[in-house]
Amino acid sequence: MHTPSDSIACLAAVHHSYGKVRALAGVDFELRRGEVLALLGPNGAGKTTMVSLLLGLLRPDTGQVTVFGRDPRELAVRRRIGAMLQISGIAPNLTVAEQIDLFRSYYPNPATVGQLVAAADLADLMHRRAKALSGGQLQRLHFALSLAGNPELLFLDEPTAGLDVESRRRLWARVRELSESGRTVLLTTHHLEEADALADRIVVIDRGRVIAEGTPAELEAEVSGRRIRCVTRLQPDAIRALDSVRLVERRGASTEIFAIEVENVLRHLLTQDPELHGLEVGGVGLEQAFLTLTGRDDNTATPN
C-alpha cells in the first residue's frame, strides 16, 4: 500500500536514556506523507522523547533519526517543519501580533498573518502581551507559531493539554483542515479519544517501546475480542485457564470476561455451569483495547 518514498520521517532502532533512566528501548517508527499520526501512550511512555529526537533537540544514544531523509538538525529540515512543544515558552513582553511577525520572519515562505490568526482564533488578542494570556490562549498562540512557516510537517506535542472541551474540539477541527490541505501531522496524546478522533494511524508506545500500531479500527480489532458478563459459580482461575481468555474480573455478583473467541468460551462456560445466568455479550471499546495493550488497568482487572 505504501512505498518507502511515502516515508517522511523515521526512527530506526533508536535507544535513548536520560542518565540511568531509559526513555526509548529500541524504537522503529515511520511517519508517512500526508497522514495524521497519533503517538499514544501513558505519561512517561517516551512520546516527548520521540518528538524531541525528530526535532533534532536530542541526539539518540544509538540508532538513526531522519526527517525528509536528512539529519533533523539541518536548516533545510527546520524550514519545512513546525512544532508545538510541551515544554516551551515565548518572550513574555511581546504582543501576539509581534510574536507572529517575529516567527514569520524566520521562514522563507511564511503563512500570512491572516491565515495564522484565523487558524488559532487570535483576532481579539493581537495586542495582548504573552504574559497576559490565559493558559488556553497561550496554547493557541503556540499553535499559530507552529504554523508560521507554512510547514509540510507539523509536530504537536500534547496540543490540547490544558484546553477546555470547546477549545479542544476547535483545535481538532483545525488539525483536520491542515490534514486536508495535504500536511503531515504527528501528534502525541495520552487521550485515546483524541487519537481516535484525529488520527489516520495510531502508534501505541509504553515504557519506551512501540507495542502496537494501526488504524483506530485495526487496534480495536487487535484486542477485539468481546466482553462476556454473567453470574456463575465458576472460579476466575478456572475461567482464565480457558483458551483465548484475556481478562477475568469479579464485579459484585457477576463475572466479567474478555475473550477473543467468545463462542468457544461461552460453550465451555455453559457446559461447566448449567446454572449460569444473567448472560450479556458485548463489544470492547478502543478504551479497553488501549488499557489492555498498555496493561495499565491493573486496578480494576486481573491481567491474564
Binding site: 526535532l55 533534532g56 533537540l57 536548516l75 527546520r78 524550514r79 517543519i81 512544532a83 512543544l85 515544554i87 516551551s88 515558552g89 515565548i90 518572550a91 516567527f103 524566520y106 521562514y107 503556540h142 507559531l145 508560521a148 512557516g149
Partner: peptide, 10 residues
Amino acid sequence: GELRLKRVTP
C-alpha cells in the same frame, strides 16, 4: 523554554 522553541525554527 523560549530558546527550545527557537531551536526548532530556522
